[in-house]
Write a protein that binds this DNA or RNA. Structure first.
Lengths: 270, 270
DNA sequence: CGCGCGCTTGAGTTAATTCAAGTTTCGTGG
DNA sequence: CCACGAAACTTGAATTAACTCAAGCGCGCG
């Protein structure tokens, strides 16, 4: 089914023509290795492969959800548009990401490719039928939904409780999830995509990144490549460890209960 | 199992001692009537009933997720705290809401009661086993997860793309989902809860609500009761139909594609 | 009766936006 | 091969939405 060889399972990113060189893979999507729900689905349910070029659409908001899509390689963005033309990118989807689960009647968002992307599509009724008869399919679907639920909750938290700069720091941490401190990590999407994902402007993204560099938190090799110098300091910053500054509203409770963001690391496989 | 009679399935709200009088039920939670996943679960899986007083805790972040909870009546809030004491209320849960589905290892958030609340708790392994053997349980669990996914996505969108005032307007619309224009609708939680849910301050909530009143969008009978005078105008406002003002960043595309928020109405049962 | 809590309102401050250049890179066509 | 133009990104200056701080009000409870 796949005549396109996988030089690298998780990402053939070649943003802008710059080859990914020796840059570490950016986050996006579930951690590979651990048998992902998408892998399971591919084994158990027949699907079709497709290759998309940057900008090509996978799904359109409002459509009847006929298919469930899995990202094999590359990167997509899932977004909504408002009447007045604003865009919100709900999430990015890298290898392993499944789109279209749990739809209630209509497609919740549009999606298109950012980089050249290979996807599998499963017909929704087929997946449903398979899930009904095969416990393994069921498990995969449940796990995928659970992961998305986790992700969504984290994203909601990020938008709801973090100031602009903190959101951006958190996002960089997420990008560099699998990249050790000091190693370069590629930023596979443009500033506008980041801005629309985090609910800020491109200028704010740019300024924040450069401010992080000046503060010694990161190093920016070029606009699309950075290194986290101290993920610990970065995390501390996200959690408000320092700046009592404004911009972050919300009730301040007695403080210092248990928590902290369960760290941008996805719960791996759980 | 239920020796506590249901005077009204959906809400015995009596915020602050003020009885709900003839106020319409505020949103919160799935629309009743349509057979809800929680109803199905109650029929199919044994569970325990409990009654909680305002402030009592249902779950604590970080705990092992041993049980799945369903709200029968009343109102809860699900939240996280940061190291520096800020709180984010991920969602409110009214009758029909299920908490604890799809957990991957740990409880994602704490939850406590806002009003006196009756809940059922199911042991997670029991639900899982039942889901494995009974297609009806399975369907209920899947549907509940799908609904939460939908909700989460809407909430994320609200936080990510809407300006403070619009978030508040959207929230009021959600509250008054089942209340016809011109009829009073109760606000079952305090300003601080609203603020922590929407990522703004209590002052901003208060000011926005009063500004809406001055603009003729709503009427505020008392701090905990309002009427939407024109939900159409309100919705237009949320979607940025008017104010091109600042505060709402994000790329402005050519504008006016298909969409608009699929309206704060939940997709009913789908 | 008075304290406390929840809510409102005003004034000043600030984070983040808008507007406006300016730079660099990359692709295209002469 | 170089020039030009577009796109992506950066940076500065002015503006503003939303925050913080600070009262002040009203109501319910002890």
């Amino acid at each position: 089914m796949s005549d396109v060889r996988d030089p690298c399972f998780s990402c053939p990113h070649s943003v802008h023509g710059r080859s990914a060189a020796r840059t570490n893979h950016p986050f996006i999507g579930p951690l590979p290795g651990s048998d992902s729900p998408l892998d399971a689905l591919r084994r158990l349910v027949p699907g079709l492969m497709r290759v998309l070029q940057p900008g090509q659409s996978l799904a359109t908001e409002g459509d009847a959800p006929g298919e469930i899509l899995g990202v094999l390689s590359g990167l997509i963005r899932c977004y909504r548009l408002t009447a007045d033309g604003r865009r919100h990118i709900g999430r990015f989807g890298g290898p392993g990401t499944i789109v279209g689960l749990g739809l209630l009647g209509v497609q919740r968002h549009s999606a298109d490719a950012i980089t050249p992307t290979r996807i599998v599509s499963f017909r929704a009724p087929v997946v449903e039928a398979a899930a009904d008869s095969d416990p393994a399919v069921r498990a995969a679907v449940m796990k995928a939904m659970a992961e998305e639920l986790n992700d969504r909750e984290r994203l909601q938290l990020r938008l709801g409780r973090l100031a602009a700069e903190q959101r951006i720091a958190d996002f960089l941490l997420e990008l560099a999830r699998r990249t050790p401190d000091g190693s370069p990590c590629e930023i596979p999407m443009c500033r506008a995509d980041i801005a629309d994902h985090l609910g800020v402007t491109i200028e704010t993204v740019s300024r924040a990144v450069h401010r992080f560099e000046r503060r010694g938190l990161i190093r920016l090799d070029d606009p699309r490549r950075f290194r986290i110098l101290s993920s610990a300091a970065m995390r501390a910053f996200v959690l408000g460890g320092e700046q009592p500054a404004a911009g972050t509203p919300c009730t301040r409770l007695p403080a210092a209960q248990a928590m902290t963001l369960p760290a941008p690391q996805s719960p791996a496989a759980s």
